[in-house]
Amino acid sequence: MRFSPFINKPITVSQIMLRVLLALIPGIVLYVWHFGPAILVSITLASITALATEALMLKLRNRPIAPFLQDNSALLTGWLLALSIPPLAPWWLIVVGTAFCIAISKHLYGGLGNNMFNPAMIGFAVLIVSFPAQMTHWLTPHGLHQIELSFADQLEYMFFGILPAGVTLDAITMATPLDTLKTHLHLDEPMKQILDMPIYGRLAGQGSEMVAWGFLAGGLYLIAARIISWHIPVAYLGSLFITAGIFHLTDPAHYVTPLFHWFSGAAMIGAFFILTDPVSSPTTNKGRLIFAAGAGVLTYLIRAFGGFPDGTAFATLLMNICVPLIVVYTQPKVFGKKGARR
């Protein structure tokens, strides 16, 4: 005997996750265009590891495997982690990171729907704390190469750690634009001179700013398709812009423009793809605004004054902790209770 309702809107978790994956594709395409196909290898590695770990954990937890493997959520976690770490890294870095995401920060909390923290960001935090050296070797965009490394050479490095003779890792990688900025500001170099360096493009990092445009486009698609609500991206980018703007206006020589912050690091992918993870973000619209605004301020503070070049991951995790509290204090008023306070 089944009870009402007898009809359902034809939408599934799997389709929602699939659309988020699709929305990542413009960013990935631009990534490949500017930095070469290495990212595709790490995404593939992350996908395989994510699905394998998911299956193993489901088996250990005695859960049905097929419906959960089909929900695409593990795949999404893997992709987000792969996009957050340097692509030209030893294969085990992404494998260890993804396995940690799925096994520890998802399944040990109870699997899909029960993780308190964003799994991909937990994976990122674990990697950056455990393997800081490997996590700084970012690919140089095309056009800035001193040495052009072929895809075969890249694969050889990723899987066997062998570089072509005479090539050092430093010659083919660089620090991120945010990191470079931080280092040079520390040396008291003038802002103008730093931003005139070849790794900077029109708004932020050469190449990486284009990838950010790609994520922005994908994110706007998600909002248009009503997969995510506008509250988190708007509040996050808004508070990041305002905070950066205040500092920039007071001291332009030491604090870079708000647009630079928007288009560097993980700001765009964070705003549309990471902070919007429904499981670990608040369920009320007011709560979403508070959550994302807090993450924006924290991101800026970590970038400008913290020990890490980018702050999106830690800002997300710190705000994840606050979610239950935010939700309790932002409950909407129920129909018929508008007059009275709850």
Binding site: R2, V13, I16, P67, G111, G113, N114, V279
Partner: peptide, 10 residues
């Protein structure tokens, strides 16, 4: 109904 999955708080 398709199989029931856990709530993802969407």
């Amino acid at each position: 109904l398709p199989p029931t999955l856990p709530c993802i708080r969407c």
